[in-house]
Each structure stands twice: as C-alpha cells, then as structure tokens.
Simulated assay, not measured.
Amino acid sequence: MSETGSTVPRRQLGRHLRDLRLQAGMSMPEAARLIERGTTTLQRLETGQTQKIRLLDIRELCSVYDASDVVTAGLLGLAQEASGKCWWHEYGKLIPEDFNVYVGLEAGARRLTSYAPDVVLGLLQAPDYTRELLRLGFPDASSAEIDRRVELKQRRRRILTRKRQPTEMNAVLLECALRRVVGSRKVMAAQLRHLADMSTLPNITLQVLPFSAGIPMGDPIGLFTIVDFDVDRQREPIEPSVVYLENLTGDLYLEQAADVGRYHVAHEAIRRGALDATASRSLLRQIAREYAA
C-alpha cells in the first residue's frame, strides 16, 4: 500500500459526496463556490484523488447538501481514515454503525465474487430470512426497525435485477448455508426457492460447494467478497479491486494486488470443487422440497 494511505476511504468519500451533490441538484462549480473552494478541489475530492482532506470542507459540503447527522459523521470518519496506511473501520469509533461503508462499494461494483460458508449472502436473501437474522442480531429492536432494515437490504438487491447493466455476481455457498435452519423450515424452503430463482438470471452464477467436496484450499475460509469495478476505454479498471471481509468487531478492506489475487485464487479453487450452476439449482430445489415436506 502506498505511503499516502489506503485509497478505499478516499474513493468512498468521493462517491458519497458526488451522490449527495447530485441529490441536492447542484453543479460542481455551484457547490465549490458555496464552500469557497475551487472546482478542481471539489473534483479531486469526488474522484478520490485528494490525499490531504480538510475536515472543514467535508463539514461544509455536508451542510450545503443538507446531509443527515449519521451521513455527516460517516463522511468525517472516512476523511480521517483516509490518511491511514492500512484501513478498516470498527463500529462505534470514527464511523457510526448505521453508516454502511461496504454498501457504497457494492453499489459501484461491476462484478461481485463471493463465498459464504455459513449463511446466505445478503444480496441473495429473501425478506423473511433476513428478518429472522435481524431479530437475532438486534433482539431489542422494534418490529418497525426490523422492517426498515429488511427494506434497506432488499433495496440493495436492485443492483442485481435492474434492467440496465446489472451487477454480475459469481457466488459459491457452502452446503452448510443451505442446511442451517434460520427461523423455520418454512422460511428455509422459501429462501432456497428464492436462491434457485435468482440463479436463473443471466448475470448471476450461483454454485453450491457440497460437504462431499471437502476443503478445497486445505484450510477453512470465511465469508469474503471481491469487488471489481468497471473498466475505462483502455480496458483498465476505473478503481482498484477490493476484498471485503466482514468481522464481528469491524470490517476489513484489502486492496493490495497480492491480497486480491490470493482471494481470486481461493475462489477459483472453491468454484472448481463446487457443483456446476445447473446441478446447484437442482440441489437448491431438492432441499427446498425437503423443508416443505
């Protein structure tokens, strides 16, 4: 990683600032004028090219764009994290828990390459499955709060189902994720039918790693997602790929090419050990029938 720090928070900060400006209906020169900065400065902020970020600029932009307190706190946290030589965020510290950094990466992705050993991936979850997980994760939350969180997760799924340039997804689920009961057998039957249906979309490749395949890499591997972005006219990625690792106490983002490459190798090994897409879909429907019996 370069001495100027991780590019992930700078890119995320820029993406959020650009989205806020567009939602506010402002041009870049207009926004720059309101905070008494040059248009070039704002352009560099929005493209993640600024290495020295003034917190005052972020506060003023959030005020101009009428950003919420949570969003403002999240963007200030990103600005402070951007100077680090490696980067992660721990909930409850610089970045508030309700400010989901990964969602910004996900929204800008061209392709998501994922492996999930224990649970169905968020983007592939049916509403009732999500609801049961949230009830366990937030036991004190009201029904209204749970419903809001379910709605937010379902909204994220639109990147896979939109008509124009849907995000590609290459996902492998360990059979454990299909056999581990979340909520009830009825919930599981619906979830597995949902997975089978989603796997018919042309932009989604879903495979199941059966128990009989053993451990393809020799060591167990946890949940991970590789986020790849679009390419420019020279076929170069517009942003470097990132590996996202979700942990109990915080989220880790790996962006060194060697680290990303190792995860690509791991996913390929897992994919080779998995059932092909057709056989995986048949297994999903078979287990769904077992749950419904």
Rank of each mutant, 00 (worst) to 15 (best):
I58T: 05
I35Y: 05
E90G: 14
T225V: 07
R37S: 14
L112P: 04
D251Q: 07
S241P: 13
E145C: 02
T278Y: 09
F211Y: 13
T40Q: 15
F99C: 09
H16K: 13
Q12N: 10
G74C: 11
G84I: 00
M188S: 05
A279C: 07
E132M: 01
M1H: 12
P210C: 13
A107Y: 08
L55M: 14
A292F: 01
D251G: 11
E168I: 04
P96K: 11
E255Y: 08
S282Q: 14
E290Y: 04
L42D: 06
L245N: 08
R289S: 13
L22D: 11
R179K: 11
R162H: 00
P117T: 05
L124I: 06
I215F: 05
A269E: 13
Y253H: 03
R157N: 00
D228Q: 15
D230V: 06
D228E: 15
I159E: 04
I287G: 01
L123N: 01
S199N: 06
V243R: 15
A196G: 11
G214R: 05
Q165K: 15
H267W: 13
R10D: 07
N100D: 10
A274G: 06
R193T: 04
A177D: 04
P220A: 06
Y129F: 04
R162D: 00
G104A: 09
D197F: 06
L248M: 12
D19K: 14
I58R: 08
L124M: 14
T50W: 09
R271I: 00
V103H: 09
T200P: 01
C176N: 12
R15A: 15
L252R: 11
D57S: 13
M198I: 02
G48H: 10
D69C: 00
L56W: 03
V120H: 05
G14V: 03
E97V: 05
C86S: 12
Y91A: 12
L136N: 04
R131T: 07
Q43T: 15
L34I: 06
S27W: 06
P166T: 11
T47D: 11
A126G: 04
E3F: 01
Q43C: 10
R33M: 07
R164W: 04
V182E: 02
L55Q: 14
E290H: 10
V120W: 07
